[in-house]
Design a binder for these strands. Structure first.
Lengths: 214, 214
DNA sequence: AGATCAATTTTTACGATGTCAAGATTGCGG
DNA sequence: CCGCAATCTTGACATCGTAAAAATTGATCT
């Protein structure tokens, strides 16, 4: 036999699974302190280890934040998919739903959202991070593809459709997270999803609207 | 006589005008290192003074960044106005022009832009900062007002128009500054302004389009 | 089982940072 | 010309990220 122990899957040495614990502690630290006051020693303290312990699991702070960003990107993807799962299957509804999921995630996890899009500390070339980020991007691309009935990345109008959709959703998310949502505040308080839907709809590909009309 | 000396306007004691020099040094530091690696001691070094000198002009780093953000907001405002000045005076052209100015500024000053919208280090309640930021916001509000022929802040549809316009422009700016502009890259390289115009136009108030059509 | 070895963690140390307190410098008003 | 307050420097302290050296512990081999 090899080594099928009592422990769950692959229980490392002293701690249990320090790598995982560090990532959880890092998310806490990020949520409470924000990216700009994020401290590696603070993370170590939360995880109950010495300040130099993280070094054996993450080369440096940047590496830890990169791994955390990859995790965030994965959850970001599922936030969109979840929203889509509970929506009508027609292309337009799916388009709106992924946008709502995008904004959902940003509002529920402002720290992670800023880490992904507003920080230069994670290594944006990291393959794992790129993989998950691309997945999220592809959700949007597929939405547009389903509405326009062709691959948007293969012609200029399509690229414009994608850029418009991404921009407006990203803009809303950013403004809300940055505390500049005052214009929308009253409307959102009355009916959040309806207002966001009306906003996102402005980025619906014009070609789709025409197609619908005839 | 009072004190009309040889020096330009109001030459303080030792340095000349350290406050101003610090702000200029801070902008340099911000541009070169980015907000996340910004260092007060680095600023002092650039200005050629000791590391504790800034304390007499700015309570702490946050105060310095607040003053810098206020300066940035002022320039941001003029970037929009400048663009508008060299555009056709009709409402729609003015609307597009301010959006182009918005994005112009972000691309030309990514550091300042991130300081204004992506950092929590400046004190967002500072009266001077609020004043300049509001001026910028009001440009957009006026654009929408001119197109819809009423005050957008006084009814829901108007607020939505403003939010849509701000969101898409802000989203484009953010994505480009964050290095996620790859979808647009080829189009922008071919004709920057035309591409951005087509994008921004998607946030043109629907009521204006109707009005134009009849 | 016991010894060895490598993976993991802690301890210690160094340079850099922001901020505070004390001292030194300098120009202005009497 | 003298004092004084504004300005700047020096020195100190706590905190931070990171590297190297010691210590601990689990796994593997015989």
């Amino acid at each position: 036999m090899t080594k099928t122990r009592t422990k769950p899957a692959k229980a490392p040495y002293h701690h249990g699974d320090l790598r995982k614990a560090l990532l959880e502690a890092a998310e806490q630290e990020l949520t409470e302190k924000g990216i700009e006051a994020f401290s590696l020693r603070g993370v170590a303290k939360r995880a109950g280890v010495s300040h130099a312990a993280p070094a054996h699991h993450f080369k440096d702070t940047s590496a830890l934040l990169t791994a955390l960003a990859a995790l965030a990107a994965e959850r970001f993807y599922t936030a969109m998919k979840d929203r889509q799962a509970q929506a009508t299957p027609d292309p337009h509804a799916q388009f709106i739903a992924s946008g709502l999921g995008y904004i959902d995630f940003a509002l529920a996890n402002p720290g992670l959202f800023k880490l992904m899009f507003g920080s230069e500390r994670p290594d944006s070339d990291d393959p794992e991070l790129v993989r998950h980020a691309t997945n999220g991007f592809m959700v949007l691309v597929k939405d547009v593809a389903d509405m326009t009935a062709r691959n948007p990345l293969e012609h200029d109008d399509g690229r414009l459709d994608v850029a418009a959709a991404w921009s407006i959703v990203h803009g809303i998310a950013n403004l809300l997270v940055a505390g500049r949502g005052f214009v929308l505040k009253p409307l959102l308080d009355r009916d959040r999803d309806a207002t966001l839907e009306r906003l996102i709809d402005r980025a619906t590909p014009p070609s789709f609207r025409q197609r619908q009309r005839k």
